[in-house]
Design a binder for these strands. Structure first.
Lengths: 354, 354
DNA sequence: AACAATTATGGGACCGATATCATCGAAAAG
DNA sequence: CTTTTCGATGATATCGGTCCCATAATTGTT
């Protein structure tokens, strides 16, 4: 019988909370049996399992995963790096991921970069100290040091919401460049020729790389169509919101009063711009067409409803979760995958008909 | 000199990543010195510190907090239980908290109940296994088992966004009952007598206890004023959003066509209701006054701007963070505190003037 | 100068689980 | 009836840090 376990008392550094040893002593079995009864019940006789369950309930025992993690070298953590949580789409990703990982008993460790690469690196280091079993990064632009840390981490890495040409690991995303191009094409197809855009990357310092990518795609498509990109305005800093859009559109229209159509890199800016137009007596879509990005709920609510480019962030979160589960499950398919969840134009009424 | 540390090789169960032992051997000091150089540099001579720093950089060493947590019995985790992340106010709380805890090197462990008490209990158990140093619960209505778990956890507990009469630990919140009463009083003051409300708790099964509390406060105030609470409609289930408000207001106006003013337990429902009224040709505020709760950004955007009840969730998150830091810092003031962050009416234009 | 106090560092046990291998009894195979 | 196989359980080392106490070196005290 488990003699060694029966006599051992809690050491001086113990927390006082019941441990697996207390359970084993009360149940009259070894610690290993308790461990198995919890994490792999089929290996234990039903009668034994019952005894253990009783002891657990009697003591109010809650296993310590910190200890378990150290021993098994599996922490059950997934690191998720987001620009911010106060953005419905990123929140949706986090939500979808949590959902997908819930039953596998993984926990998400979320960190926010606030669109700052230095902060990203700092946060990454903190995250790494928790020994996550996989890392999910939003975007694909990292500092050299951060890239090095990621490579050295030796765990699956998934870059999401982007489609980098030189990815570090797996990719589940969409092309932000294509978003911009699609927006431009859409406005061009509607017959506009004086076309502008508002986004948040001030000259010289890029914070929101994905937003900047959308701006570039937009510009590229304009040029391809032989149109001027003069009315593409970069103003303010991420995170972009209503106020940004309002200020940006005011500037833009002052600079380029003949502008017929505008792409906003975020629906939030787009809506802010819309409000500002109302205040300035600029009618949408009659005097100015507006297309956004992100398909935020608010775009359905405003009047006129906002035409926008939709990406299924929920799907993105779910796909990421499923990939993670596959990666961390059985064998761990090592081949880095690349998934493009695509995008689509949601036609509503903020763009004038061709 | 550290002879024992110099010879020891990595064991068979090692991950292969550099450990503190590798650093100590390369730097020619003991493990403890490395540990101190990292977490308490003042205890180590600058020259030694330098040697350690070099070794750390050379190896790309990242400390393992799992091991550190086990040993020090300080995990650096704060558990945060939220109904959902896809709600700007809760996201703001999470954001504010993260912000406040960032420099103290704490990590937030977030779990979502989806407004389900059974799920809350399950999530709580999972959270507890991570040995958080404090637990932040949204709301104050828990299952008996959950309450027992919380009590037994033996760590500071903060209940937020509510003002329970029999709290488990610290409280930082506001009275949801008072929110309802304030809304009712406001509408009454504006001269309305046929007053209704829409909220999401179906008869018999309460999911959103805080929302239900707001409904009750609303009803209580109506009764106090000698008004009928017949037009208080419970419909649908949390989480409440636009569609809920739209459906609910349609029902309500069908049932009580003479209703003059309506309180929605959430701005999201209120905005949905507003849209539905537009579709039905009911003019706001001329034919129907509308007041919401939560002061979501969208309320500023819609037309007419939504009158609502504001609670500073940001402040709530910050206060919670500060309290946590104090609690986990020096001495750990044991007296459970109680903070009411209050509430205020944001007068906009969705309520007709008296 | 002798002794106490302080500072810098090291040695070893320990935190609470699980990996791994050993053991033991019962059932299956020969 | 022995030998092999298998299923259930146990003993022990180990994961990678930090706590606690010991020790050596330095500084301060009278």
């Amino acid at each position: 019988m488990a003699e060694a376990d029966r006599v051992k008392k809690a050491g001086p550094r113990s927390t006082g909370r019941p441990t697996i040893r207390d359970v084993s002593q009360l149940a009259g079995v070894s610690r290993m049996t308790v461990s198995r009864a919890i994490s792999d019940p089929e290996l234990v006789l039903p009668a034994t399992r019952e005894k253990v369950a009783k002891a657990i309930a009697a003591l109010g025992y809650v296993p310590d995963r910190t200890a378990g993690s150290l021993s098994s070298r599996k922490t059950g953590f997934i690191a998720l790096m987001l620009p911010t949580l106060t953005n419905a789409n990123f929140a949706a990703v986090a939500h979808g991921l949590t959902e997908a990982l819930r039953d596998a008993n993984f926990h998400l460790l979320i960190a926010y970069t606030e669109y700052d690469m230095v902060e990203e690196e700092r946060q990454l280091r903190n995250l790494l100290a928790r020994r996550p079993e996989a890392i999910v990064m939003t975007g694909a632009t990292h500092s050299p040091a951060a890239s090095k840390l990621l490579l050295a981490a030796d765990v699956p890495i998934i870059e999401i919401a982007d489609l980098p040409s030189r990815p570090i690991g797996h990719v589940i995303g969409f092309s932000n460049h294509e978003v911009g191009r699609t927006a431009a094409r859409y406005l061009i197809d509607k017959g506009h020729t004086r076309i502008g855009a508002i986004g948040g990357t001030v000259e010289g310092e890029v914070r929101d790389h994905r937003g900047e990518e959308r701006m570039r795609g937009f510009e590229d498509e304009l040029r391809l169509a032989g149109l001027s990109a003069d009315a593409v305005l970069r103003y303010g800093e991420a995170p972009l919101s209503y106020d940004h859009g309002a200020a940006a559109i005011a500037r833009l229209l002052k600079k380029s009063p003949d502008c017929q159509a505008v792409f906003a890199v975020s629906d939030l800016s787009a809506v802010g711009a819309m409000m500002q137009c109302q205040r300035m007596g600029v009618s949408i879509p009659d005097q100015l067409s507006l297309i956004g990005f992100g398909d935020f709920e608010i775009g359905r609510i405003v009047d006129p409803p906002l035409t926008t480019i939709h990406v299924d962030f929920n799907e993105l979160g779910r796909r990421t979760g499923a990939t993670l589960l596959a990666l961390l499950g059985e064998d761990g398919d090592a081949r880095p995958g690349r998934v493009d969840v695509g995008l689509s134009v949601v036609e509503r009424e903020s763009v004038s008909k061709a």
